[in-house]
Amino acid sequence: MLFKKAFSVIVTLFIVASAQANDFSVTLLGTGNPMPEVERFGPSTLVQVKDKTFLFDAGRGVTMRLQQAHIRAPQIDGVFLTHLHSDHITDIDDVWLSGWVFSPFGGRSTAFNIYGPVGTLGLTKGLSAAYDADIVIRKNVEKAPASGIEFVVKEIEQGVIYEEDGIKITAFTVDHGAVKPAFGYRIDYDNRSVIISGDTRYSENLISYSKNTDLLIHEIATGDKRIFEQFPPAKAIFKVHTSPADLLKIVDKVKPKLTVVTHIMILETLKVPKLPLAVVAEMLNDKSGHEIVLGKDLMRFEVTPNGVTTI
């Protein structure tokens, strides 16, 4: 009898721990950059916390990755934009429209919630105007609910922008050169946290908001040194992104349990080939012991009370 009771307690504790361990996860939907790549779609990160689903940026191909991750568009409770560069927003229209029309992927009947910097409202108004003919037809012929195509827009500033059911999302400014404001995001839940850097060069403000986070998801840019001779704009590009050396400095100050590299930008030209990923990985070899992983599309992370598990 005592054995049965003890066994029952152990099983119950295991189930509770497992449920808690799986209530905060991150999926990389796109780890690429402005250049089209089949293996790496445009920048986009899915965060699932408790019973909420959030999308951070919506780069090229995000709807395809959502389908591969078995996420229906109406499940998304909010879209959060880091900034308005085209590679971070180019698939918002697809998530918005495909999530509305009747299909196994869509069928949204509630408004599309979107958070972003100044200019986000103008973006949504432009999308509504651009697709007006399609929207009218789907409302009149397919009887798609008018409520499902509406935007609810919140243009944000630095600070807490979402707080509900123990979930807190904080926006903080980062340094993306002339792009102002550009934001990173911190997601907190149950004494666990995730940081999404957005596009930025070395940023003390990011470091301040990221201290002791569980999972740091950070961008990177690099390339063969000859790229500056063959492609003069490379200097301007690198000035507003984070080099491997600067990322190591950031990681050393933040001390996350795990760092994952996304928005991987390895510049190349016809005469200067792209650096192999193995070379980039070696650049990120952190001899101080911090774990840094090169992200891949559809890579998933569970943020548990005991650490971060990579799936």
Rank of each mutant, 00 (worst) to 15 (best):
Val293Tyr: 01
Asn212Met: 04
Arg60Val: 01
Val79Gly: 00
Lys257Gln: 15
Thr262Tyr: 13
Val141Arg: 15
Pro256Cys: 13
Tyr202His: 09
Val141Ala: 09
Leu28Gln: 04
Leu123Trp: 02
Gly184Met: 02
Ile311Val: 11
Met64Thr: 14
Leu270Cys: 03
Asp57His: 13
Phe24Trp: 03
Ser98Gln: 12
Ser8Trp: 10
Phe238Trp: 07
Arg72Thr: 13
Phe41Ile: 08
Lys235Phe: 05
Ile161Pro: 10
Pro34Gly: 02
Asp246Phe: 04
Tyr115Asp: 04
Phe105Trp: 11
Ala236His: 07
Val16Cys: 12
Thr259Asp: 07
Pro36Lys: 00
Arg186Asn: 05
Ala130His: 13
Asp224Ala: 11
His176Asp: 13
Asp91Arg: 00
Pro43Arg: 07
Trp96Val: 00
Thr63Leu: 09
Ala281Ile: 01
Phe301Lys: 10
Asn140Leu: 10
Ser44Val: 08
Ile149Arg: 11
Pro244Trp: 05
Ile195His: 08
Gly177Leu: 07
Tyr162Thr: 10
Lys274Thr: 14
Glu219Ala: 14
Leu97Cys: 04
Ser25Cys: 00
His263Gln: 14
Pro181His: 06
Lys257Gly: 13
Thr200Glu: 02
Lys125Gln: 14
Leu277Trp: 08
Ile292Lys: 01
Ile187His: 06
Thr63Ala: 15
Met64Val: 14
Ala73Met: 08
Met265Tyr: 10
Ile114Gly: 10
Glu229Trp: 06
Thr124His: 03
Lys287Phe: 02
Glu39Leu: 10
